[in-house]
Design a protein around this nucleic acid. Structure first.
Length: 348
DNA sequence: TATACGTGGTT
DNA sequence: TAACCAAGTAT
C-alpha cells in the first residue's frame, strides 16, 4: 500500500476511534451477534434495526437457540422489519451451522458465503469484523464514499459499477484492522458522507477526496432511476366467527412469505374463490369495511377489506389457516401491509 | 442482466 | 407530496 493511501486509512481509523456511534452490536465479541446485526441492517437504517436487534438477542441469544426455534417465533421477531426472506434464511442458516458445522460458524468470507442469506457484503462484514479477515465489505455507504473519494462516475446500480468500486475497496483494507476499517467507511457514509447533504467540513479525508476537490460531491455516485411501483387493487376478506378472525399464511417464497394476513388477493379474481382456495372456508361476500393503501418498493397496494359470512367448510385440515381471537392478533407475525388492513376493518 | 423482495425516514 | 434512499440477496 502506498504512503498516501496508508495515511488516508490511518486518518479515517483515527476519526472512527474518536467519533463512532455507540451501537448495541459494537463491542460484543460474538460472531453470531455480528451476523444477526449485519442481516438486520441490510437495506435497513440503524435506528430501525436497533430495537429488533436487542429483542432478537433476548429471544434467540445464540445459534443453538435460534436453530431450535420454530418458524412462527422467528417471523414474529422479524415482523415489521421487512424483507422477510432474511429471517427465513437466517433461521435456515443457523440450522445448517448446527447440523453440518457442529454449531461453529464458518470463519472465512468464502465459507460464510455458502450459507443462505449471506452474500458478498455480509460475508465480508462478518469475516472482517468477527474473524479479522482482510476483506472488504461493500454496501451502499461504501459505494458512495469510494465513488466520491476516487471521483469515479460508474453507475453503482449496475453489477459492473459495484465490481469496479469493490476492486477499489479491496486495495484499502488494512491487515491489522479490517473490521474497523470497513465499519469506518460505513460510518462515514452514514453520518458525514451522506447522499444529499454531505458534511465535508467535518470529513477526516476530504483532502484526499476527488469529488470534493472537483465540486462533484452531489453528482456522485452515479445511479440510474428505479421504475415506479406497479399498482395492484387488492380485495381482502374479514371473516369473523366467535370473536376470532380468519387468517392465512402467505406462501413461503413470495411477497411477505411465511407471514399471516387476511385472505384474498388481486381484485381481478372473485374474493370468495380466493378465500376458499387459501383457507378451505366458504364465504359470501358482504359490505365494504374500509380502504387503505400500502406502498412497497415495487408495488402499490390499494386495499379494500370486505366483511364475509361463513357459509361452509371444505373437508380436510387446512395448513396455513388459523382462526385467531381478536385479542391475540398482536401475537401473530403479520406484515405491516396486513396490519393496516386489519386496522381499517376494525375501525369500519 | 433484470427483477423480486418491506418498511420508514428525509427532503 | 412524491421521490428518493437505506449496513443486500436470490434467482
Amino acid at each position: 500500500m502506498d504512503r498516501s493511501r496508508a495515511s488516508l486509512v490511518r486518518a479515517l481509523l483515527r476519526w472512527y476511534d474518536a467519533e463512532r456511534r455507540d451501537l448495541p452490536w459494537r463491542g460484543i465479541d460474538d460472531p453470531y451477534a455480528v451476523w444477526v446485526s449485519e442481516v438486520m441492517l441490510q437495506q435497513t437504517r440503524v435506528e430501525t434495526a436497533t430495537p429488533y436487534f436487542l429483542a432478537w438477542m433476548e429471544h434467540f441469544p445464540d445459534l443453538e437457540t435460534l436453530a431450535a426455534s420454530d418458524r412462527d417465533a422467528v417471523l414474529r421477531s422479524w415482523q415489521g422489519l421487512g424483507y422477510y426472506s432474511r429471517a427465513r434464511n437466517l433461521h435456515e442458516a443457523a440450522r445448517v451451522v448446527v447440523a453440518q458445522h457442529g454449531g461453529r460458524m464458518p470463519t472465512t468470507r468464502d465459507g460464510l458465503m455458502r450459507l443462505p442469506g449471506i452474500g458478498a457484503y455480509t460475508a465480508g462484514a462478518i469475516a472482517s469484523i468477527a474473524f479479522g479477515e482482510a476483506v472488504p465489505a461493500v454496501d451502499g455507504n461504501v459505494l458512495r464514499v469510494l465513488a466520491r473519494l476516487t471521483g469515479n462516475d460508474v453507475d453503482i446500480t449496475t453489477p459492473n459499477g459495484r465490481k469496479v468500486l469493490t476492486e477499489a475497496a479491496t486495495g484499502f483494507v488494512p491487515r491489522d484492522r479490517p473490521g474497523d476499517w470497513n465499519q469506518a467507511l460505513m460510518e462515514l457514509g452514514a453520518t458525514l458522507c451522506t447522499p444529499r447533504s454531505p458534511d465535508c467540513d467535518r470529513c477526516p479525508v476530504r483532502a484526499d477526496c476527488v469529488a470534493h476537490r472537483t465540486g462533484r460531491t452531489l453528482t456522485l455516485p452515479a445511479r440510474s432511476a428505479k421504475p415506479a411501483p406497479r399498482e395492484v387493487r387488492m380485495r381482502l376478506a374479514w371473516v369473523e366467527c366467535d370473536d376470532a378472525v380468519l387468517l392465512t399464511r402467505a406462501p413461503e417464497n413470495g411477497l411477505l412469505g411465511g407471514l399471516w394476513g387476511l385472505p384474498g388477493g388481486p381484485d381481478d379474481r372473485p374474493l370468495g374463490r380466493m378465500v376458499r382456495e387459501q383457507t378451505g372456508v366458504r364465504v359470501r361476500q358482504g359490505r365494504l369495511l374500509g380502504e387503505t393503501e400500502h406502498r412497497f418498493t415495487h408495488r402499490l397496494w390499494r386495499i379494500e377489506v370486505r366483511r364475509c359470512r361463513v357459509t361452509g367448510q371444505d373437508d380436510g385440515a387446512a395448513d396455513g389457516t388459523a382462526w385467531v381471537p381478536k385479542a391475540r392478533l398482536h401475537e401473530q407475525a403479520i406484515a405491516t401491509a396486513h396490519r393496516k388492513a386489519l386496522a381499517c376493518a376494525l375501525s369500519g
